[in-house]
Design a protein around this nucleic acid. Sequence first.
RNA 1: AGACACGUAGCUCAGUUGGUUAGAGCGCCGCCUUGACAUGGCGGAGGUCGGCGGUUCGAGCCCGCCCGUGUCUACCA
Length: 880
Amino acid sequence: MARATLDPDKLPKHFDSAEAERRWDAHWQQLGVYHYDPSRPRAETWVVDTPPPTTSGTLHIGHVFSYTQTDIVTRYQRMRGKSVYYPMGWDDNGVPTERRTQNLFHVRCNPELPRDPSLALEPANAKQKSNPPRVISRPDFIDLCARVTAEDEKAFLALWRRVGLSVDWRTEYATIDERSRRMAQLSFWDLFQKGHVYQSDAPFMWDVDFQMAVAQAEVEDKLRPGAYHDLEFAVEGGGAFTISTTRPELLGACVGVTAHPSDTRHQGLFGKRAITPLFRAPVPIFASEKADPEKGTGILMVCTFGDQADVEWWRDHKLALRQVLGKNGRMAPVTFGSEAFPSLDADAANRAYAEISGRNLKQARTRIVELLRDPAASATGNGAPLVREPQPIEHAVKFYEKGDSPLEFLPTRQWFVRLLDKKEALLAKGAEIQWHPEHMRKRYEDWTRNLAFDWCISRQRYFGVPIPVWYPLDAAGLPDYSRTIVADPNRLPIDPMTDAPVGYQESQRGQPNGFSGEADVFDTWFTSSLTPQIASRWRLEPERHARLFPADLRAQAHDIIRTWAFYTIAKALLHENSVPWRQIAISGWILDPDRKKMSKSIGNVVTPIEPIEKFGADAIRYWSGSARLGADTALDENVFKVGKRLVTKLFNASKFALAQSAEPGPISTELDRAFVGELRELVAHCSAAYEKLDYARALELTESFFWKRFTDTYLELAKARARCESDAAGRASAVTTLRLALSVLVRLFAPVLPYISEEIWSWAFADEIGRASVHAAAWPGAADFSGIAAPADAASFDAAVACFLAINKAKADANVSAGRETLRLALAAAPATRARLAPVMSDVLLAARCAEHTLAEDATLELGTIAIRDALFAERAVEA
RNA sequence: AGACACGUAGCUCAGUUGGUUAGAGCGCCGCCUUGACAUGGCGGAGGUCGGCGGUUCGAGCCCGCCCGUGUCUACCA
């Protein structure tokens, strides 16, 4: 035979997915199939902006789900001929890694310390852990964190390779590595030059456990039990009123009292001063529209600071600052009778305060409630200030998303990016971007509209990118924060705690008239909001940046629209007045069978490696590729099974189809041409779906065609002719069609099922088309169908199928197998159907094993219907 | 409390701009086995498309209200 044929006996009986996954991964890496080609112009490049997974902990099946969806559309673009830039980073920088490193090596970080070149630490044993932790410099601590995350990064990489992500692994980076640090610091430098960042020493959200500020995007409300405490205050010059508070422990921080101006109950009080119980502090009583007459007693105490409303009253009414809560969440030592803490009875106040000083908030609350039950604490002489038992309520309390204690508002010095004045511009950029699914855009818009704070970017942490600034010290050795020294962009990355600014010597650190370095690091989002720029080497390689920015596609989940998507859009806006990407694809979540989000904290995660071993990576990918973008999907192992069955069917059907051989020849029969016509239509529909990122639709179409139009029908109708000795032309046409169909179908499946596709491709097409990998082959299109004549009637394949299935059904009704010979067959069809069947009837009869038949005209039958008037099948199967 | 999404067969999900008796896979029941594949094939049962009302010649799809689920946002006196 002139045409190379496949000897099925030389192929394995079953598809060993684990073995194939190892073999093809090695092949792809060796060939560099997924390498980005920087010589190609922007228009021929597809840039995908991928989420760097957090490398503390493990990846679960939900990660595989969403990353695979991105891989599928990216593989499609590669086959369309694009030079693909598909990077992978590891988000190792952040609080969880820091904690693990502290525990593992039993160390603490002090950014003030210089690097110790002789430091060589190993994980600490139990005995070492009984000693105080070793204190090391920030650069040394960062090195240790990198060591800790390196292991996870290896495991993550292995999983992604196993799943078949077509990442260009030469692009691997970490959000703490030198390039990312340089990019984050360059970003800061640029924002500083443009006036988009500022420092503020004002009350802001503070986590007392982590002892750091947090941004609005990292805050979540949790419902917590609380209680209204009704406390009687005195009015200077006589009188009394009762306020309601859930924060009695902050009574010492009370700086004012307010009620709604129209509230008749409190009209006479405005302008007077109130006297607090217990501490006897005189505070102003003022009217405020923000006070809600319906809540509590309608009149309330303003403290520094119980909540955001307190901050606003404090600021708007220029109230005193009485900070009783320390950064560590304990009551700070304060003295009543001082200028800051006035009291009409300082001795009593200090005696009371001594009871709570140094205690945490919860202890202080318990104790102060006890004190308030004492009539001696009254400011009015009417008896105990606590006028009734606390009334339990449930209320929303702000928490840091990773924290266990409620957030407090504390005045601290923080760096901010100014965003509140740019809402319109941010919304405009969001409108330029194509969102998939479209309704996710609304999440972005709602968040942007509701933004209440500028972006707090400084964190009181160690394992992060240092903020590249210093402050000059005055003659007294105090920093002048208004004269910030920003690091030279050409020197980045730097660590201001170990590097000296230009114009200073290291010996001047901390000295009068010298300098001090900024000890804080950036919020991790400050770095990860630059993933498109990290890829394009913004400001470092302008030509490359022009080719890779903005990216084509951002892929991410919907829960981080307010963080990752939002901050990335903000950065691109502030740096270059650009969008960071043209499209964004939002993946859904994987839910457990109880429809709960799969998450480590709930403990319902499914690790991916077991299903991969059991069903094969392609089957897992099939599951990912079956789900639409943005749709939360319940985990259903059944879909893995269906995927595996498809892979097996592809394996068997391909083996069989490719084993048919013939002299080369054109596609000449009506059946073959009509079938090819349908195949061509399938390709058009799949391409259109992929262009809309609707990979699930493309898969559904391909799968259904493969099963219903190819294996169940075309293959059955054509296989007898493909082996027919007496019809050389017909045989050649069938074999050519089979090969074409397989070549096209395998390529349509390739983005979703890369392993089995490559396996089949390697049997027959790798050499022929001159591509060593199906993933570097051209997406099916016009070229595959050129020179193939159109069928006389596009519906003739459909007619043949209908006839064949009708005969098979008759066999099933007669309880005989489809392979049984048909001895007698009387058919009837409408005249048009009959005419349509004529050129394909020989194939139908061959497939049905029918030697003789009649086909009557019956105008009463509907078009396309084939009626079986009489049939007789062989008693038993014929001997081979 | 608002916003968004979802609610279709026992389960997981399709249903493209409203158009004949609403689909797939799994599961269930029955049948078929020398013909590439039992990881197969054929057939069957199973749905008042969450509810009510409206628009229309015609509604799973459009509009209104309600119920349920999920998510996001808001809510510390």
